[in-house]
Amino acid sequence: MLEVFIFATLNGLVTGLLLFMLASGLTLIFSMMGVLNFAHASFYMLGAYFAYSISLYLGFWAGLIFAPLIVGVLGALVERYGLRRVHQSGHVAELVFTFGMAFLIEEAVQFFWGPDTKNYQSPDLLDFPLFTLFGQEFPAYRGFMIGISISIFIGLYYLLTRSRVGIIIQAAITHPHTVANLGHNVPFIFMGVFGVGTALAGIAGVIAGPILTTFPGMAVVLGSIVFVIVVIGGLGSLVGAFIASLLIGLLQSYAIASDVGVQDLLNVLGLEFDRNHPLTDLWTLTLPQVAPILPFLLLVLVLIFRPTGLMGKREQ
């Protein structure tokens, strides 16, 4: 039992931190421009695909460096020539635009790379078990993922709260006009933040691609979950996003690891139903089965009872 618990925690941590890399960029972009970027997970997918193509020629590590850069530049271009233009037509138009981008990027990926899954491999250098516990191996690559995500969180946190750039960005979030009057180029800051946010998503894609498989549907699988995290954590809150990411990651992991079902609950209550009952689907439900939809349940509950999210300050 203990081993299951430990590994479930580790797995949850890996997933949670990966989700955080996506959510951090998304929440940064949101707090700046007030737009929820539907295409964010698509940039994550682009990261994986670019890294795959680069890794074919230059190896994994080159991909880790260049793919996020390419994705970041693409993101900045999308902001400059797309989002900024749509901005005049209001928030709904912006949301719909990013929604359209998500759709377009998925189709474009299928066009350039084809619909098949890609054989994107983790580097040989990290191809060893980090440690073995109760006969189970924990791959070094997963440890590497944890390391990268945590260093990004720390780096980002310090950048935003301690550095000059971070202070300007924070100021631009709340008082864009004042910052502009001080002589800073606010549209340029916006473009930069969008670029950095998408590049973060790109890094997530690069390191997740080898273990979560690189295929055209990978954006859809993660896309809505990242939204859920940003909303649960509180729109615009980096710390909230961090907590919510870990929460969702661990929640899903524990749910899968458990073997509890409605039946067990009924047994505790002393109730029993036979298999031919019209609601039999409900009685035979188990926690692992519903694990992937738990985040959405949490989302709806949080929005109903605490629309600001866990750490959010303002309502949108």
Binding site: E3, V4, F7, A8, N11, G12, V14, T15, F134, G135, Q136, R142, I211, L212, G217, V221, L222, I225, Q252, S253, I256, A257, P288, Q289, A291, P292, I293
Partner: peptide, 21 residues
Amino acid sequence: NELHPIGQVKDFTPYVTKIVS
């Protein structure tokens, strides 16, 4: 005996952990 939602699982490692244990 595990049934998981189709096309929704991001990472199968938690399932593999269960298989191993």
